[in-house]
Amino acid sequence: MSSVLRRMSVASRLLLVIAIGLLVSSAIAELYGAKLSSEYTRTVKVGPRVASLLVVAAITSSGRAEVTVEGADSVYYVKVAGDPFLLAQQFRSLRLNVSNVRSNVDLRAGVTFTAIQVESNPFLVQALSLLGNVIPISEKKENVTRITESVASDSSLLIVSTKDSEGEVRYIIKYSVEGYSRLTAPETFIVSAIMVALAGAIEYYRRLTVKPFL
């Protein structure tokens, strides 16, 4: 194999290798490829002293998050700009008293959902405003609030829920990926075949140019 490759030009070898790589990654994509939607449900205990935060961060994808909040008296949300990986750092800088952090990473959908309990105080919303514009949700039907927002790898969604009495808040999130598409398996096969043919053409041309010299 090595002696065959040795007689080939770098360009044609790279074309062959990339054609194989393309087929391999396409096969992996067919077997374990990305999901275009994700769902998550979480119930968090809240009360006069404890608020709940939900963070929807699209670590690699972008899309639309539909969040249903059940049982909260007040709901606010903030769109936080920047790398979601830096969000935790930004959040720490607010020096909030945080407890009970639960994260769920859905790698195949490229999104993370994190539910956090945080000490509730009159300055909470003010502190969160340091991360972005805090928008209160006034529309509510039967104690259910709905938020639909876009998230991307440079902007995350942070939802704050508070309750005046002891109880629970339930989050139901439906996340759908937008703006993703890749070659289908037959398309990949065709592109790979073109690359192999191109490699063959390069080798043929090389033989034509070098051989007459000797």
């Binding site: 040795r6 007689r7 070098v210 051989k211 007459p212 010299f213 000797l214």
Partner: peptide, 17 residues
């Protein structure tokens, strides 16, 4: 291969076929 090497060297030196 020696063929290719001599060919490239000939181009460096500017020698003919």
């Amino acid at each position: 291969p020696i063929r290719d090497l001599l060919y490239r060297a000939s181009l460096i030196y500017g020698s003919s076929r």
